[in-house]
Design a protein around this nucleic acid. Structure first.
Lengths: 239, 239
DNA sequence: CAGAATCGAGAGCACCGCTCTCGTTTTCTA
DNA sequence: TAGAAAACGAGAGCGGTGCTCTCGATTCTG
C-alpha cells in the first residue's frame, strides 16, 4: 500500500518530469530544424504522440516554451565560453579572450538556430521576459568585461584614451556599476568593441551573409577579426 | 473612341501599377509593424479591401513579396550609405568610412524590422534567391572595401601584416577578384573587420541586446567602436 | 474509499498560405 | 465593331497554426 502510494506518487511526478524534459528536447530539436518562428506546439505534440491540447498541460504557451529554450541556450553558450576561458591560465588575458570568442563561434556554428534565437532578429510578437533572460543573457559579455578589466589591472592593456561624450561616459559608469567591475572607460570600450566584433562576425557567418561558398576557412577569418579587436592587449609570453 | 481605348488601356495598366505599388507599400508597413515572419498576404489583402486570393494576381507568393521587399531594402540601405559617403571629399577616407557606417546605423535605427530582414536571423522556410539578392546585398560591403583600397593606394593605411592561413589567403584572393579591387590582404582584413564590427554593433543595438535603458546615447557608443576599427587609417587633415 | 486534482482526447475558433472555379469586366484582334 | 482572349475579384476549400473549452478517465490524497 505504502509502496503503491509511493509508486503512484512517483508515477505521476515521474511522468510529468519525463514529459517536460521530452518537450524541451523536442523543442530544441524543432528549433534546430525549423527555427524559432517555426517552433510549433502542434508539431511537438505530434512527435510526442499526443494531441495538441495535451501539451498545454505542461507548457503554458508557445512563447513560454520559447522562453524556456532561450534561457537554456543563453546558459549553454555561457557555460561553453566559461569552460573555454578557464582552460587558459588566468594571466594570459589575450589567450583567454581569444578562447572565449572562439568558443562563442564554435557554439554558434554548431547550432545556428539557437544562435539566431539569442542574437538574431527578435521573433515577431514575442518579447523575452527580462526578469528571466537578463541574467543568463549577460553572462558572456560580463566575462569579456571582467577579463579586460583584469588585463588592465595587470597593466597589459595599452590603448589611448578616446574622446568620449558626456552621455557615453555616464552610460559606461552605469555599466561598470551593473557588472561590479573596475576598469577605465577606454578598457570598457575595448571590451564592448570586442563583443560587437565577435557578435557581428559570428552572425555574418552563421546567417549566411558571406554567401554560400565565399570562405573555405571562416574560422580563420573570424580569428583575424578578433586579433584586430584584441590589438590593445599585449601578448603574454607563449600566448 | 481613341480616348476611350487609351483610357481603357491605361486604366488596366494604371490599376495594376497602383495595385502593385500599394501592395509593396502595405508590405513595408506590415514588415515594420509585425516583422518578417509576421508578413501575411491575407492581412495585406484585408488592408487593401480585397479578398485574399486577389493579391495572388499581383504577387506569386508570400515569399516572392518578401524577396521584393528584401531587394528593395538592400537597395535603400546601399543608397543611403552611398549618399552619405559621397557627401565627404574623396580623399578623406576615414571620414567617408565613418559617414558610411553612421548612415548604416541610422538606416537600421529608423527601421529595425527591415534591418532584421537583411542582417537578422533568416526567416524559417524562406531562402532568398541568390540571383536577385546578391548584387544589391553586396553593395555596402563593396563600398567599404573600395574605400579601404583607395586609402591604401593613397598610403594612409598603416597596419602590420598579420599571419594568415593559406586557406584564408586564397579566400581573400577570391574576394579581391569578385569585387574587382586591388588591395593587400591586411587591408582586406581591415575592411571586413570594419564591416563585422559595424554589423555587430548595429545589430546588438537594434535587436535590443544592450537592454532596455542601458545606453542613453547608443550613437556615441557606436562611434567609438567604429573609431577603434578605423585605427589603421590615418586621420585626414580636418577630418 | 470518497472527493479532489490531474490528465488526454476531441471539438471548435480564428488565423495563416495557397489553389481552384466561376461569373464579370476589360483588352486585343480579326 | 463584334467576338475571342486575357485579366480580374469573389468565394469556397484544403491543410496548417496557436489556443480554449468540455468531457470522461485516471491518479492522488485526506
Amino acid at each position: 500500500m505504502c509502496d503503491d502510494v509511493l509508486m503512484a506518487t512517483t508515477t505521476r511526478a515521474a511522468n510529468r518530469a519525463a514529459m517536460e524534459s521530452e518537450i524541451r528536447r523536442l523543442g530544441r530539436e524543432h528549433l534546430r530544424t525549423y527555427g524559432a518562428a517555426g517552433l510549433s506546439l502542434r508539431a511537438v505534440a505530434r512527435d510526442l504522440g499526443v494531441v495538441s491540447s495535451a501539451v498545454y498541460r505542461y507548457v503554458p504557451s508557445r512563447d513560454d516554451l520559447l522562453t524556456l529554450l532561450l534561457v537554456e541556450a543563453y546558459s549553454d553558450v555561457a557555460d561553453s565560453v566559461e569552460q573555454a576561458m578557464e582552460a587558459v591560465p588566468p594571466d594570459r588575458h589575450r589567450g583567454r579572450l581569444r578562447a572565449a570568442t572562439r568558443a562563442l563561434r564554435a557554439w554558434a556554428v554548431d547550432d545556428p538556430a539557437r544562435w539566431a534565437l539569442l542574437y538574431g532578429s527578435p521573433v515577431p510578437g514575442y518579447s523575452a521576459p527580462a526578469e528571466q533572460t537578463v541574467e543568463p543573457g549577460t553572462r558572456v559579455v560580463a566575462m569579456l568585461i571582467d577579463e579586460v578589466a583584469r588585463a588592465e589591472a595587470d597593466g597589459v592593456l595599452q590603448c589611448r584614451q578616446q574622446d568620449l561624450t558626456a552621455g557615453l561616459r555616464s552610460d559606461l559608469a552605469t555599466i561598470r556599476d551593473e557588472f561590479g567591475v573596475e576598469l577605465s572607460d577606454a578598457a570598457l570600450v575595448v571590451a564592448t568593441t570586442l563583443w560587437s566584433t565577435a557578435i557581428g562576425a559570428v552572425s555574418l557567418e552563421v546567417f549566411g551573409q558571406y554567401g554560400a561558398n565565399t570562405f573555405s576557412d571562416p574560422a580563420a577569418l573570424f580569428d583575424v577579426a578578433i586579433e584586430r579587436a584584441l590589438t590593445p592587449l599585449a601578448e603574454a609570453p607563449r600566448d
